[in-house]
Design a binder for these strands. Structure first.
Lengths: 195, 195, 195, 195
DNA sequence: AATGAATGAGCCTTCATTCAT
DNA sequence: TATGAATGAAGGCTCATTCAT
């Protein structure tokens, strides 16, 4: 066989890396960062323990990249909304924003669980914290804009309140899972905000 | 010489136990449960590693008692409110409840940090989870009552919304600490709820 | 009250010591030496951990004295037999010796268990081993004498065989306990030796 | 470089595992299970402490495998006898059985020591006990058969007596080692049984 | 004589990380 | 690129022993 080209190597690398990241995300979110060993991740990803260190300098670095990757995904989703924002009424935009949040919450429970568990736990992992903070600011800005469009005078502080509200709901939902009446809470919240 | 009296032993025990509980609470809250080793706790408390096991059967049991102790403190505070609840107007009661929450949040940052960090991390520690869940239910009931008195028809689901709102605010406050405009958020929240 | 006399102190000491020895024997025999902690022994004896060190320099020393005490008891029993040995026929003496052995085995299962478990385990505890060896020699001499009286020419080596036979039976009985047909084995053995 | 082939890994594993098993057998037999720490075993085997857990799930599992391995060796030896059993006279078969026992005792002192020391100490380790019991039953059956062929009417109970006799001799030999007249005892025993 | 709180060495075990191949 | 055997520090926990009272 002809030797692999650089592109082929590059692709193999990318595939392996992705496999590892996906496996790590799943395990971190379900079992928590500390309860997930490199061994488990390697097995789950179908690769060897040693290979992991070929792509990530340490377990902490892997965590950081998991978070980055996940948040990028989330951002992509939310940007879809923004594209159409100008074509619809402000109220509708707000409603859509909220609907989007709940949709993402349900569809990415794993990621949310991970994010929350990290948020409270990694004062000693600044690089990871920074990534999470950055994303939070982005979301806040979006909310400010949408609330401003909806005529909220205190949109600055109201955005913070809304963000807190949503994160609080997410937190409770993730803790109580099946017993939490997410649908009712969501409807009530939207009703309250979009009147 | 004669051995110590029972009272003397009791006092020594109480002091040591408290020392350990306090040290554990601080470290658990700052570094998280998994990042806090028994060694660290012992050093922080100024005792030997082995002594911990004289008072707590395991690290998990220590955590449980830390949580219980902290929640008892919190409960005492909140009960102060309930005493006067019937003498004041419903609106005032709601305002007081919210004020109380923020006061407790500020005064017991450590406990809140611990609670949140635990909430996402200890699905496999039923005994601890149970204690936290119990407290959450208690708070929820209080909110339901106060909201009902304030004429909220959907007081059931509104209580859940309020609880989420408060926990969300607490979460953000604990993450961003000094940069979080807690006072403004608090005033706005109270204004929104007590109109 | 008048101060205690020396005799009273002496008696208290003796009682405490005995309590500890008895407790230790029971626990050592049931759970094994290594699985029995000083704490357990103290609790079982109804005294404090510290007091034990008032009477025994170490756990190993305690073990040694337990063994000595137990073997002395055993010796007393066997000496009862010897007293009457001259009044009965040699065959009867042999039968009685064997009967005595089985009786002691059944009545002192605890001690036997302990002895066996020690015998194989304490090459690194010479002081204890010495005591056990000494007793074994004593027993062997008795057997030699009785076998000689019964006309065994090779009484020297036959005594060793007999001792081994009895210890083997004891070993199996202690391992299999209820399922071991001790009575049948005993009758057959006696029948074989006393014909 | 290319990773090792499966065969290479297999061989490395086999070698390490054997090193550990051999080291463990020796130390368990000499010092007893409880007095032998994983650290000691690792040092004795010339490997790191952690590596043991790459091959054995726990110290108890290691013990179990040590016992199994040893008993397999023993079984192989005894099966050599059975092959020729039908070609020789019953008396000769019995004599051979006994000779074999003594040969195995001398050649596998370590294993015997281990077996005895375990027999009295591991009532709380069912998995290990089961293996040992199984082997004992096998041996008993063999004895029953051979004794029956030799015309013993009570071969059932006589087999138990014989097994006890042999184990008793082994026990004494292992305790007193060099000072025990094993050869004389063996000859006398065979003489007694094969007349 | 008696107590039990306190110590600290040592135990079994886990796991991130390295390295020879 | 890829493997997994090997390491060693660290973790939770036990327990014989000491010591102030």
């Amino acid at each position: 066989m002809a030797p692999r080209t650089n592109e082929q190597f590059e692709q193999i690398r990318a595939e392996s890396k992705t496999k590892i990241l996906v496996a790590a995300l799943e395990l971190f979110a379900i079992d928590g960062y500390h309860n997930t060993s490199i061994s488990k991740i390697a097995k789950h990803a179908g690769i060897s323990k040693g290979l992991m260190y070929n792509y990530f300098a340490s377990k902490e670095q892997l965590l950081k990249e998991v978070v980055i990757l996940s948040l990028e995904d989330a951002k992509k989703m939310s940007e879809q909304l923004l594209q159409n924002l100008e074509e619809i009424s402000p109220t509708e935009a707000l409603r859509l924003s909220l609907e989007l949040f709940f949709q993402m919450l349900i569809e990415n429970k794993t990621l949310w669980k991970l994010t929350f568990s990290l948020a409270m736990q990694i004062s000693n992992m600044p690089s990871v914290t920074a990534v999470i903070s950055k994303m939070f600011e982005d979301i806040l800005q979006q909310f400010e804009m949408v609330l401003q469009l909806n005529g909220y005078s205190d949109y600055n502080i109201e955005a913070k309140l809304l963000a807190a509200h949503l994160d609080g709901i997410a937190l409770h939902f993730l803790i109580f899972e099946k017993t939490y009446p997410l649908e009712e809470v969501k409807n009530k919240l939207i009703a309250n905000y979009c009147k």
